[in-house]
Design a protein around this nucleic acid. Structure first.
Lengths: 170, 170
DNA sequence: ATGAGTGCAAAGGCTTTGCATTAGG
DNA sequence: CCTAATGCAAAGCCTTTGCACTCAT
């Protein structure tokens, strides 16, 4: 009668921090700096370091994963994430599997995308739908919502299944 | 620097338990009974009562909302939900807003649908996309995933915005 | 009778917060 | 200098669990 998936074993493959992509990352830092500055909030080393990690990741990360990559204590990580979330620079959510929270840079910084979520190892990777599909979907969603006088702000699509790595391990 | 939305005030409008729809509900009980029986699990009064509430709701409910509608103690609610989740009769997830968990009957019982999630009051309501849009999306998703050797199991689409009630209150 | 199910209260585990210290402008 | 930011440890809060009791078969 397993109540909830075991959290400790759920990390799956280690969190990837891929190749530099220096220009893109630099641009993100710039945007974050500007935004925080406008908000009268300091862009300190600790905050810059976390943004760097999030910018290089190709996927939303958990606090545990961030901790493994960041040297900052948990409380600081949570606090920095809260600051960035308030500034709408970071998006926080929890996977369908209802494990712990995951964090990613806001779409304003990374562009609109969706997630491939592996039901086995829990990892998520970013994906982008073809523009025409996205348009089609967007129009349908707006129309549908309007019927209920619901004003659409955004949509989030998660694709759940089994990732290649987990499939290979079987 | 609001870290997380305040949980206590988030209930929003009270959880709706709409008109009977007796036949549909009866069918759901039937399906649940069969499934649990196959699993060698008893369909007790407490469990039946919870399923009844979920079946009548037009939306995923939190434990707090279930509690308000159910008379059973929290621990039993959580335990019953865990049993139903294990039997794949209930789906558990947490809203983008990262509040507490929400529960709904599995799509096997209710049919495939998506959610209109109000960013203000936190309530969610079920919606269905036109079949052609759903098809278009489904094909694109499968294709996209295949490129990464990701095997799609299902997809979940949440539409975030402001519900009519909250819009009126402004 | 006998094991599954239920209730209560206590424990767990991710997340938040108070307070003293450090660092940024 | 002076306020914002950080670190540590303690507290919070949703959720889970141990144990005794009850109910269904």
């Amino acid at each position: 009668m397993s109540p909830r998936p075991d959290r400790s074993s759920e990390a799956g493959q280690t969190a990837p921090v891929s190749q530099p992509d220096a220009n893109l990352v630099k641009g993100i830092h710039q945007a974050v700096a500007t935004r925080l500055n406008d908000d009268g909030v300091r862009y300190t080393n600790g905050r810059r370091a976390l943004v760097e990690i999030l910018a290089r990741a190709r996927q939303p990360l958990t606090v545990e994963e961030l901790r493994a990559l960041s040297a900052a204590p948990q409380s600081s990580i949570y606090r920095i994430l809260a600051v960035l979330e308030d500034a709408e620079l970071v998006h926080r959510f929890t996977n369908t599997n209802s494990e712990f929270a995951r964090f990613e840079l806001a779409e304003g910084l990374t562009g609109h995308h969706h997630h491939l979520a592996c039901a086995n190892c829990g990892t998520m990777t970013d994906v982008t739908l073809p523009a025409d599909v996205e348009d089609h979907l967007d129009r349908a969603v707006t129309l549908l919502a309007a019927q209920q006088r619901f004003v659409v702000d955004e949509h989030r699509l998660d694709i759940i299944g089994t990732c290649a790595t987990c499939a290979d391990l079987r």
